[in-house]
């Protein structure tokens, strides 16, 4: 770890009070950043601790919730409003990492955590386009069990590791940003980039820009929602494939459907094609399998991750079947 300075910010103004040319980085719970700095995957010369910013969860005018960026993953998962109105978000959070890590991790840090691709982490031993732009990628042609089947490029097939973000993606969550000059709002779907030729750019976040919070719109369908995570061990492991889904059936047809996938793509993956295939249809196992096929038609395996395509197909169908219950 290279030496760095440290200061605590207790307000957004303080957090953004750095000199314009400084290269300060924000520190949340540190569960990802401290590790990345220690392993020299990332470098920083100054940290601003934003984990003590006000951490509230508030009702919004449209019946949704506003969640401050410093809210801990544990607190968000345990909030009874989240449990009642967005159970898939609680379940996604609770399936992630361990209780100790969730006690430390913040919403802002979870949104911006980096991939767990082993080649990305292997500074002395592997080439990685995400770490060093243009260096090459040793994952492609290497051990690809954990890599992406959707949205990858020739340059990078690393997956986004977050569970929380998969549920947030399905819920049309909006990220609130502030760089001291301008406050902006971006839907999560526009916040994350696909790797293309620039896998080192992962989000639209500008240098020095702070995530102040997220806004989760009201969503009637989400009352009937869940998150299923398939992994190599039953707890404390990243997703091989995960599915966040919400469904509202009215008069025998699917009136609202939200579907997003984790573990399969460089960003939390909104399954828009599957949603389009289901909207207005009567729920049935056949419809669910066809919708999964529509989403996975573009899936490309690298070898070791080929199992994810049938695994995603069956997990999507199983989760939708569970939500449809007797209606299917």
């Amino acid at each position: 770890m290279t030496p760095f300075s440290y200061r605590v910010a207790t307000s957004t103004t303080e957090a953004l009070a750095a000199a314009p040319d400084s290269s300060e980085r924000f520190l949340g719970g540190g569960t990802n950043l401290v590790d990345l700095l220690r392993q020299n995957v990332e470098q920083a010369d100054a940290l601003v601790d934003v984990s003590r910013l006000p951490a509230s969860i508030d009702e919004t005018e449209d019946g949704g919730l506003w969640v401050g960026a410093a809210v801990r993953n544990t607190a968000l998962a345990a909030d009874p409003r989240i449990g009642a109105r967005y159970p898939m978000l609680s379940r996604a959070l609770l399936s992630g990492a361990s209780a100790q890590i969730r006690n430390m991790a913040t919403v802002g840090g979870n949104l911006l955590q980096r991939t767990r691709c082993a080649y990305f982490y292997d500074v002395p031993g592997a080439r990685c386009n995400k770490r060093v732009s243009g260096a090459g990628c040793d994952a492609i042609g290497g051990f690809t069990r954990y890599h992406a089947i959707l949205g990858a490029s020739e340059q990078c097939a690393a997956t986004h590791p977050s569970d929380m973000c998969v549920a947030l993606m399905a819920l049309d969550t909006v990220v609130h940003l502030d760089d001291g000059n301008e406050k902006r709002r971006l839907p999560l779907s526009e916040f994350y980039r696909l790797p293309g030729n620039t896998p080192h750019f992962e989000t639209e976040l500008r240098t020095g820009e702070l995530v102040t919070g997220i806004q989760i719109p009201s969503c009637r369908a989400a009352v009937n929602s869940t998150y299923r995570k398939v992994r190599d061990r039953s707890s404390y492991a990243f997703a091989l494939v995960s599915v966040a889904a919400a469904m509202r059936v009215e008069n025998g047809v699917i009136a609202d459907i939200r579907l997003a996938l984790g573990g399969v793509a460089p960003r939390p993956w909104r399954a828009a094609k599957a949603e389009a295939a289901l909207a207005g249809r009567a729920p049935s196992q056949e419809a669910f399998r066809n919708a999964a096929d529509a989403e996975l038609a573009d899936a490309r395996a690298l070898g070791g991750n080929a199992f994810k395509i049938p695994l995603a197909r069956s997990t999507i169908a199983a989760v939708l079947g569970e939500l449809a219950g007797d209606a299917a």
């Binding site: 440290y6 520190l27 719970g29 540190g30 569960t31 401290v34 590790d35 220690r38 392993q39 544990t74 990492a97 361990s98 209780a99 100790q100 890590i101 006690n103 430390m104």
Partner: peptide, 22 residues
């Protein structure tokens, strides 16, 4: 690196990993 829990301590009563806490 946060993967085993051997370093767990209580910080203001909450369990955390002391290896990933500065």
């Amino acid at each position: 690196q946060g993967a085993c829990g051997a370093c767990t301590v209580l910080l203001d009563g909450e369990r955390v990993l002391s290896c990933l806490t500065l």
